[in-house]
Amino acid sequence: MSSSKEKLLRNLDWNLIYTFLIIVNEGGISAAARKLNLSQPSVSNALKRLEEHFGKRLILRKKGVFALTLQGMRIYEYASSAGRMLSNMADHFVEQQDTVQGEIVIEVASYLQCPAFDKAIASYHALYPNVIFCINTQPSADIVSHVAEGGLRIGLSNKKISKTGLRFDFIGYEKMAFYCGSSHPFFNKTDLTLDDVKGSSYLSFESDQPGEGLDVIAQFREGHQFWGRLVAVSSNVEEIRRLIMTGIGIGALTTDSAQTYVDQGLLWPLPPYDDFPMTEIYLVTPETVTLNDIERNFIKQLKKHVREDAKAIYK
């Protein structure tokens, strides 16, 4: 058999308690009705039902008088404490419901340098701090294939192809240049010409091939007869840079990624010094697959920064 206490707790209606708190806090039935957007009879009825539940008069109310009884003061004290805890609980769960959570998977060409992409990550994180970035590096050709096959929905690539089901949005350029390491015979030489560099042992990205992501480098080398013995190949920019710094050959890097190492005396720029090969950067997404909100919002941020960077260039 349930005790009187159990019956009281089981049958207690929080809506009545909440209305009672508002009546007291607002100082009257009329003010509480306005606060709750209810009619005065509805609020009066709620108070009456709560008093019947406890079997006690909670508020003395007659013309010119509005005061809590002793029992009313006790219930108000307990109800206020419970209300604060429930309010904190509500804040927590509402915050969780309103917070964008999840992860965003992006594949990026390993040698790619894109200021708009970096800015988009920073601004997106500021807006949605509970979204986790999962970013992997791949050759451009693989990135395009992954999007086409449906295993990936956002990629940044130097490769553009005409293929049904894929969307390529131009988002920027990369300036490429050739470099050698500190132990290479060309290091610290300022009077080199393109003819001096031709025939040097060469380090290559896997995508430094006609029709691949670094097709522009392949075209440059072919157009200038920039041939030499191939001594190493990698798809990873860190490995290409490390191999260049060993001195076993020369290789191409983005000027932005190489500048810090040039400043440190670990890399040396080689001809051409002004006619730099320029690679294009594309955002690769599926045309026929619906992106989720997390992905759409990130792409929106990325395109915003692309536009802003373009305006800054042409000012």
Rank of each mutant, 00 (worst) to 15 (best):
H92C: 06
I59N: 11
Y18C: 01
I294P: 09
K56R: 15
I240F: 04
E107A: 09
L12H: 06
L152A: 04
L58W: 04
S183P: 00
I294T: 13
P139C: 03
S30C: 01
E52Y: 05
S30Q: 10
Y179T: 06
K159R: 13
G172K: 07
H125P: 00
R242K: 14
S44F: 09
T260L: 11
G64N: 13
V144A: 04
I22N: 09
E212K: 14
D274E: 14
L47A: 09
A90F: 12
F93W: 15
P277R: 04
F178W: 13
R57C: 08
F298G: 02
L291T: 07
I75E: 02
I281E: 06
E212I: 01
G249P: 06
Y76L: 15
I104M: 12
I29E: 05
E239P: 01
G151E: 08
T190F: 11
G247I: 08
P271Y: 08
V289T: 14
G228I: 07
Y273I: 09
S3M: 11
Y282G: 04
V284R: 01
F178L: 10
L194G: 05
V105F: 13
R74C: 05
P185E: 11
I250C: 03
R242A: 15
V147P: 02
A120R: 02
C114K: 00
R241N: 10
I23P: 11
T190Q: 13
S182L: 08
F117G: 01
E287V: 05
R74D: 10
R84Q: 10
M89I: 10
Y111D: 14
N158K: 01
S257G: 04
I59Y: 11
F226R: 00
E212M: 15
K119E: 13
D98R: 14
D142N: 11
I299G: 04
Y111P: 00
R242V: 01
N136K: 12
T254P: 05
E26H: 07
L230C: 09
Q40T: 15
L50F: 06
Q40V: 15
K62P: 00
G211D: 06
D191I: 04
T190C: 09
A116P: 03
T260C: 03
L36H: 08
D275E: 13
F168P: 06
G64K: 11
